[in-house]
C-alpha cells in the first residue's frame, strides 16, 4: 500500500510558513515604500497652462518670491499672482510672445489662468504661511529650490511626520527673517561652521521670537 503522505510532506508546514512570510514581507515592504506621500506626492510636476519658469524669474533675474506671492506674509494662504502682476513687465518684455497669450488674455478679460495646484495639504490641515515666513522658516524648507526649477515639482512629502520633524526642533531650521525668501542662503559656505551657527542662532531665535512650534492636535487640526 502506497503511503498517503510521502516523506517530503513533512516539510510542507515549513514551506507554507516560509512562503507566507516571504509574500507577507514583500507586501509589507511594498506598502511601506509606496503607500505614502513620499511616493505618491513627491515628484508631482503637472503641465501648467503657461510655461512659467521660476528658474528664470526667481533664479536668474533674482526677483523676490513676494513680488508675486504678495500675501504670503499676511495670510494663511499664499496667493497666485493675478495676470496684471505679470503684465507689469510683460506689457514690454516678450509682449507678443505666443507663450504669454493666455496671460494677456487673462489680463484683458479677467478670466483667471487655470494654474494647476501642486502643493496641497489635506483640507483638515490648517497650515498658515504667514506665521512660518514671519518667524524665519524659509520657503525652501517645504518647497525646495524653486528658484532652480523650470517647472515646479513637489519636493517634500508634506506628511504629518514632515511637519512634526520641524515642530519638534525648530531651532534646526529657523533662519534670519530677512533670508526667508533667499532660497540658496546658508550661514556659511563651510558646512561645519554653518551647522554650529545654526545651532547657536537657532536656539536664540526660537527664544527671542517666542516660537512656539506647537505639537498639540488643535494647532493644525480643528
Amino acid at each position: 500500500m502506497p503511503v498517503i503522505f510521502p516523506k517530503w510532506t513533512n516539510q510542507l508546514p515549513f514551506l507554507i510558513a516560509a512562503g507566507l512570510a516571504l509574500a507577507g514581507g514583500a507586501v509589507t515592504a511594498g506598502v511601506t515604500y509606496y503607500f505614502t506621500p513620499k511616493y505618491s506626492r513627491v515628484g508631482y510636476e503637472p503641465i501648467q497652462p503657461v510655461p512659467f519658469s521660476h528658474a528664470v524669474h526667481a533664479g536668474q533675474l533674482g526677483m523676490d518670491c513676494r513680488y508675486c506671492h504678495t500675501t504670503v506674509e499676511k495670510s494663511w494662504f499664499s496667493n497666485i499672482p493675478s495676470a496684471s502682476t505679470c503684465m507689469n513687465c510683460h506689457n514690454q518684455v516678450l509682449k507678443d510672445d505666443p507663450r504669454l497669450a493666455l496671460v494677456r488674455e487673462s489680463a484683458t478679460n479677467g478670466v483667471p489662468i487655470p494654474w494647476v495646484q501642486i502643493h496641497r495639504v489635506p483640507d483638515y490641515v490648517y497650515f498658515n504661511h504667514s506665521v512660518h515666513v514671519r518667524r524665519g522658516i524659509s520657503c525652501v524648507e517645504c518647497h525646495g529650490r524653486v528658484d532652480q526649477m523650470d517647472e515646479v515639482h513637489h519636493v517634500q512629502s508634506l506628511t504629518m511626520a514632515f511637519c512634526l520633524n520641524c515642530h519638534r526642533d525648530p531651532a534646526a531650521f529657523i533662519r534670519p527673517e530677512s533670508k526667508v525668501t533667499d532660497l540658496g542662503w546658508q550661514w556659511n559656505t563651510n558646512a561645519d561652521v554653518a551647522a554650529e551657527m545654526q545651532a547657536t542662532n537657532g536656539v536664540k531665535f526660537v527664544h527671542d521670537w517666542r516660537v512656539q512650534s506647537l505639537q498639540n492636535c488643535s494647532a493644525c487640526h480643528r
Binding site: 511616493y39 513627491v42 508631482y44 494662504f77 496667493n79 489635506p122 483638515y124
Partner: peptide
C-alpha cells in the same frame, strides 16, 4: 511599473486613503 520614490510624474497624486482630505468647502483661488 511603480518606479522609485520621487520620480517626476505628470499625473496628479493618488490619495490612497482619501477620507476627509477634500472637503465640501470653498478654498481661495
Amino acid at each position: 511599473i511603480a518606479g522609485l520614490r520621487g520620480h517626476l510624474s505628470r499625473k496628479p497624486p493618488v490619495e490612497i486613503i482619501p477620507d476627509m482630505n477634500r472637503q465640501f468647502k470653498l478654498r481661495p483661488e
